[in-house]
């Protein structure tokens, strides 16, 4: 396949970026999207040009490191996959592909396609944990009975990899899906009840402080989430928040 890539290039956080055109030829449909970018970068390096910077790590859809807004959608046009799992067979010969960083004030661009998603870390640090004494008297988690339905729902929420596609997809740059998944995974388990009030209040407060937008329930986040995190989690977080607010 021969393609035209329109890639956001930005020298650093303080420099204004722009879209730069890169024609690329002989792209195999079996390549992953990131392999295609690897090929482009090899060509740029051989020409003495600066390669395109982009985030990646596990390349198997687990780590949540890869990002990229591809033709106006986070992780591209496929569903239930991260950018590293996206294959070039999703495109046609002659296509023009826009590649941009995830956009939100809370995700400032570091360079080219790499954004700083540490705002997610700070939301997690604000309450996305349970406090357990690990001094040697730790109780086996399996000794506490958990309803199967709740365990499954909690596991579903816990599959969020924190990639930021929900923020990137949302027209309001809202981080409600991410935050609600991290609240839900504990809210559904007995182990999470002790700190439930502080958790939801602190995580929502941090989410607001980071400058994410408000959720208007468009559902774009759920559609684009590579892990299929459900909007049910946002409703659950809203309930948890209202419950915590009255305490």
């Amino acid at each position: 396949m021969n393609l035209t890539l329109k890639i956001w290039r930005q020298k650093d956080a303080n420099t204004q970026g722009k879209i730069v055109d890169y024609p690329i030829s002989e792209v195999s449909p079996d390549m992953s999207f990131l392999e295609m970018l690897d090929v482009l970068n090899e060509q740029l390096i051989s020409k003495g040009e600066e390669p395109v910077e982009f985030d990646h790590d596990c390349r198997e859809g687990i780590c949540g490191t890869c990002s990229l807004q591809i033709n106006g959608e986070p992780h591209g046009p496929d569903r239930g996959v991260t950018t590293c799992q996206l294959h070039m067979r999703m495109f046609k010969d002659g296509d023009t592909i826009f590649i941009e960083p995830f956009r939100a004030n809370a995700f400032p661009v570091i360079k080219d396609l790499i954004v700083d998603r540490s705002s997610f870390d700070r939301i997690q640090q604000a309450g996305g944990f349970i406090s357990v004494n690990t001094s040697g008297n730790t109780i086996d988690a399996n000794s506490i009975p958990v309803n199967k339905h709740d365990a499954d729902k909690s596991f579903d929420a816990a599959t969020c990899i924190g990639c930021g596609a929900c923020v990137a997809a949302c027209k309001n740059a809202s981080a409600m899906l991410f935050t609600s998944a991290k609240v839900s995974q504990f809210a559904l388990l007995p182990q999470g009840q002790v700190e439930a009030t502080d958790r939801v209040m602190n995580m929502v407060r941090q989410m607001d402080l980071e400058g994410f937008g408000n959720c208007t329930n468009t559902g774009a986040c759920e559609i684009e989430c590579p892990k299929g995190i459900s909007l049910e989690n946002i409703a659950r977080m809203n309930r948890e928040y209202l419950k915590a607010s009255t305490k």
Binding site: K6, W8, I19, Q69, N71, G72, E73, P77, F98, E100, R103, A104, N105, A106, A169, K171, N172, A173, S174, G211, F212, G213, N214, T216, T218, G219, A220, I223, E224
Partner: peptide, 21 residues
Amino acid sequence: AKNKSARKIKYVSYNGGANSS
């Protein structure tokens, strides 16, 4: 107004119709 200001730099290509009504 708050939501618009949460993304000061807009996407060059934005395909909202792909994931929302």
